[in-house]
Computed example of a mutant assay.
Amino acid sequence: MTKVAILLSGLRFGGAERVSLNLAKAFKEKGYLVDILVLKKTGELIETAENDFNLINLECDKTFKLPIKLLRYILKESPKALISTFWKLSLISCLVRIFKPSMYLFCVEHTTPSKAIFIPTYLFFITSSLFYQLSSKVICVSTGVLNDVKKHSVCLKRKLSLIHNPVYPPKTISFSESKQKTKLLWCGRLDDPKNPELMINSIDLIDKNLGLSLTFIGDGPQMNSLKKLTKEKRLDDLIIFEGYLEDVYSKIGNYDILILTSDREGLPTVLIEALYSGLYVISTDCSLGVHDIIQDGVNGMIVPCGDKLLLKNAIIESIGKKCDGSFQSNTAKKFLPEFVIEEYISLMSS
């Protein structure tokens, strides 16, 4: 059987990690053997990866150890393709491919480099323009990411491909029939880039007599400070913190509106999952990838980043909107894994 390897730093509960496992599942369904390579065996998704795939811990506590360990793996296992999901890992993968040029290498860019905080834009420009030439393709998960990589690199255009993240719909879908949409959901990692504090500050501006409730699903470094803020604003009766849930779909269909408050994103998976579940969606304009998902005023609304007043207005406007769950779900069909995986397989055949 043909083998494909997916390289990740770890398997925490994050968008890039989740869609990487979705991609692995789609390859497996097509009859491929899939190895999940991690630098360290950490994160909430480790158990899922171990149950479904061959999880290989490269045991790299320092990144400089990765080239040798990755090369040993590639020479021993000979995967037909290696899919690398983060910039630093992709640079190393490009170098390693020199010793195995017959292997396809797909470097996946999930975020716009101009907004990434973990790498200066000039450094991305230099390294991507040089090292990514050694890849088979650079996969950009949204139109915004594609355009930004083009802008911040040279001589890379022929290497770039737009392939959306694969997102599975829930196994069973039961759309809410509620006329008044009062159950709000925020889902993701509770950290600075996601800006969950904006959600609390916005709902604090809304008349409590509207009967809204807000649930946070996810965990992260801001959990305690958000709970403190909730208490300070006397919103304890309105806001619930569920924490991390392995099966988000088991809960997401119980809500009416999903809200994304991020300051930056690539292609926000949670918006797609919400649409599959028939929810109306509201998002900050945190990337052009949002526009790949939301048709503003049709299946959701887009508001400026960081503006609690405009977010509040969007929530109030959305409460009374008619929302056909089946229509919402159909707007996300282009992200179905059965379509996405064919694009990868096509690249592996070229």
Rank of each mutant, 00 (worst) to 15 (best):
S128W: 11
I239W: 08
I240V: 11
I163K: 03
P304R: 12
S326Y: 11
L134R: 11
K151E: 14
Q328S: 11
L198S: 04
K28D: 02
R97Q: 04
L311V: 09
L89Q: 07
V108D: 01
E47K: 10
I46E: 05
S277P: 00
Y104N: 07
D307W: 03
N195E: 09
L33H: 08
S114G: 10
A16V: 08
D204M: 02
K171G: 12
S84L: 07
L58P: 14
I56V: 15
K322D: 11
T331Y: 05
D219H: 02
K30R: 15
S129I: 07
N201K: 14
T182Q: 13
P120M: 03
N195K: 00
K65G: 08
V38S: 06
C286F: 10
L82P: 06
H110M: 03
E273P: 07
E338R: 07
A332T: 06
D256G: 03
Y344R: 00
L210T: 11
D292L: 04
Y73M: 06
V38L: 04
I139H: 04
N51F: 05
K171T: 08
A81V: 09
D285L: 05
G188K: 00
I163Q: 05
L156Q: 09
P170E: 01
Y122L: 13
V4C: 08
Y276W: 14
P196F: 13
I46H: 07
K183N: 15
F125D: 12
I139N: 02
E109A: 12
I200P: 03
V96K: 00
Y249D: 11
T261R: 10
V34D: 01
K100R: 14
K25N: 14
C305L: 12
S174W: 04
I341V: 15
D237K: 14
R18H: 03
Y132P: 00
F99A: 15
D324L: 00
C305H: 08
S350Q: 15
M223S: 13
S102M: 09
D61R: 13
Q295H: 14
L66G: 03
I302E: 11
F125H: 12
L347R: 09
D148Q: 05
L71Q: 11
I240W: 04
I173M: 10
E342Y: 09
I83Q: 05
L45Y: 04
S346Q: 13
L55W: 12
K62L: 09
D236T: 15
I272H: 07
D247N: 15
G188M: 01
K65C: 08
K150A: 01
V19S: 09
L229T: 10
I92M: 09
I83V: 10
I259G: 00
S128A: 15
S20I: 02
G289C: 02
F125C: 10
G220A: 09
S346E: 15
L95T: 01
K65M: 13
N299Q: 12
V270C: 05
I119Y: 10
E338L: 06
Q133K: 15
E265P: 00
T127E: 10
S329H: 06
E317T: 05
F86Q: 11
N57M: 10
Y244I: 04
L37Q: 01
Q180D: 13
L156V: 12
F131Q: 08
V19K: 01
P196S: 14
S135V: 09
L279Q: 01
I240A: 10
R189K: 12
K208Y: 09
I200Q: 02
I345M: 14
G218Q: 07
S93A: 15
E338F: 06
Y122K: 13
L214Y: 05
I345P: 02
K137Y: 14
W87C: 04
T143H: 07
Q328P: 04
